[in-house]
Design a binder for these strands. Sequence first.
DNA 1: GAGGCGTGGAA
DNA 2: TTTCCAAGCCT
Length: 322
Amino acid sequence: MLQQTTVGTVKPFFQRFTALWPAIEDLADAPVDEVMRAWAGLGYYSRARNLHAAARRVAEDFGGVFPAAEEQLRTLPGVGPYTAAAIAAIAFGRKATPVDGNIERVMARLHAVETPLPKAKPELKALAEGLTPQKRAGDFAQALMDLGATVCTPKNPACLSCPLMAICEGRRLGIAGTLPRRAGKAARPDRQGAAFVLTADGRVLLRRRPPRGLLGGMLEVPTGPWAAGPPQDPEGHAPVAAAWQRLPVRVEHVFTHFRLTLDVYAAEAEACDPGLGLWVPWSEAAAAGLPSVMRKVLAAAADGQGDGRGRRAGRGGGRRGR
DNA sequence: GAGGCGTGGAA
DNA sequence: TTTCCAAGCCT
């Protein structure tokens, strides 16, 4: 869960997960759709599928006993170099050196490494390995990560509070705050599309997305293609022909590699045709487990229905947690 | 090796 | 508002 995700964001998800599935066998026995539902809103959904698959592998191939060696941990789906080392060191007290973004930053500054990431990764890892003590490697790693998260921060590092100030090459050279250097990132393009909120008998039509790719395996409100420029023939991509009404709201959402703007169309069907997908009562849509972008669509539809009355003002449209 | 893959908080 | 980026992994 913590892969590319902050502790504050993860915390409630972690607590729900461990309450639902306290033991590895519980998670292994759970239907994958329920795991995806509990993950909804956390992002990077392949992690959920991988976590579930990893639980099954531990239950079946390792007799329910979690492996402790990095090499074996690496064979679990979703477990890469960082996670394998973190589990070995933190959970099992092995000598291992997990290197996350924090530790990369601390190492780059401490040793004034000016090589840009990701090329500098091997060097930064070697530097961290050289500092790893024989005992309590897990505590050492967590100490470095906490130092990076609270003192040696990406911007405006608090060097005056840093226990390593006296030996930090980056600080001595006056470049600590500019490290690590990074290769330039591609700009985030804009995409647009149309979402179709079809209701019938107090229910809303949802579909499950294909297991891989963007929002893989998650529920969605039906949408047309997401492409550059305004949607072409939006109603031609609607799940059914109907009296689609474009709502005076627009949903905006930022993904890892593009920015999305959705027009929202609404229509009322006469009956819940099961051939179209899942018909979920409005009151249960939140609990059904929707990615954030799809929750925004439903919130916008709920806002936009009310004849232009209601909260929302101007661009950006309705927004509401839940 | 480079790009796909969510979301939210902070500056 | 925009940018950065977080306990990365997979293809």
